[in-house]
């Protein structure tokens, strides 16, 4: 039973790392980036390509992946999301166009990687990192799992702190509440938007690398389902709440691990999808929801 807990914690941490980026950009600058899954997977892919030529360690690989993610995400922001926002007639159409645009753009990295890998899984075969397994009290935790847990914890806490206590974080939240007034008061929306998308992409890249380490390999399609689960997690926890995302990630992970344990593997994904429906119908603002669910 307690092994289940460990597994759920690790899974939840991976989900959380993936979600953090989406949660930040959605909660502050109102961009629900559906290309996030593609960025996540693509960053790991680039890292794996580099690793196939050069032997590298865990940290290096993670850094490379994060950097790729940040750059790609920032590029998408500049080339796609900002232009869409500029041209949109109103808030409602902007939101939907960004969603659709994100879906469209998200197919590009997936297509590129499918082309190169022929949909076969890819991983970090020549990394110098070797995973070790620690046992204690009858439970097993791999070193990778430990890294994942650690990263998730450190990053979630730092980001929550940053959003609440620093001037940048405050500026971001001001944009989220009322972007026009924020701009009038000197908050440079475009720069902060770029920064946010960059950080969000970096987190996606990091998550990608860590998941690849944890599973051994991922495929071009790995980002798709994660994307929808991320949505489930964020609305469960409440948009704009970092703590909510953490709680949501753990709830989903635990539910999935339990479902996996007691039924066949096929129903695991349904947990996330069902969660979306349940949350939206019963309590759309989520557990710690701060933003009101706009009836557009």
């Amino acid at each position: 039973m307690s092994q289940l807990v460990i597994d759920a914690l690790v899974l939840g941490s991976i989900y959380l790392l993936f979600c953090l980026g989406m949660s930040i950009s959605w909660g502050t600058i109102d961009i629900l980036n559906f290309a996030h899954g593609g960025i996540f997977m693509f960053s790991a892919f680039v890292a794996s390509q580099i690793v196939s030529h050069v032997e590298l360690g865990l940290i290096t690989i993670c850094v490379i992946s994060a950097v790729v993610g940040a750059v790609v995400s920032a590029a998408i922001d500049v080339l796609a999301f900002q232009p869409i926002l500029r041209r949109a007639k109103n808030q409602r159409t902007a939101e939907l166009q960004i969603l659709i645009g994100g879906i469209g753009i998200g197919t590009i990295p997936v297509a590129i990687v499918q082309f190169y890998t022929l949909s076969e899984p890819f991983g970090f075969l020549r990394s110098t990192y070797e995973t070790t397994v620690h046992s204690f009290g009858g439970m097993r935790l791999s070193s990778t799992g430990l890294v994942v847990l650690g990263c998730a914890l450190v990053l979630t806490v730092s980001i929550a702190y940053w959003l609440k206590n620093t001037s940048h974080g405050l500026a971001l939240r001001a944009i989220g509440v009322d972007s026009e007034t924020a701009e009038l008061m000197g908050v440079k929306r475009r720069q902060l938007s770029l920064l946010t998308m960059g950080i969000s992409g970096g987190l996606a890249g990091l998550a990608g690398a860590l998941l690849t380490f944890n599973l051994g390999a991922i495929t071009a399609e790995s980002g798709e389902t994660l994307l929808i689960k991320a949505f489930a997690i964020i609305i469960l926890g409440g948009v704009g709440s970092t703590g909510g995302a953490a709680l949501g990630a753990m709830i989903l992970a635990f539910s999935e691990v339990l479902v996996l344990r007691y039924t066949g593997g096929g129903w695991v994904d349904a947990v996330g999808f069902g969660l979306i429906l349940v949350v939206l119908l019963l309590r759309p603002q989520g557990i710690f929801g701060k933003k009101e669910v706009r009836r557009v």
């Binding site: 609305i235 349904a270 999808f273 069902g274 979306i276 557009v296």
Partner: peptide, 22 residues
């Protein structure tokens, strides 16, 4: 879904599609 709109309605229907697939 009668009380959902916009993005949230979209995601609820996406969830419905995915459930059918599962």
């Amino acid at each position: 879904v009668q009380r959902l709109n916009g993005l949230y309605l979209a995601m609820a229907t996406v969830a419905f599609v995915m459930i059918v697939t599962v």
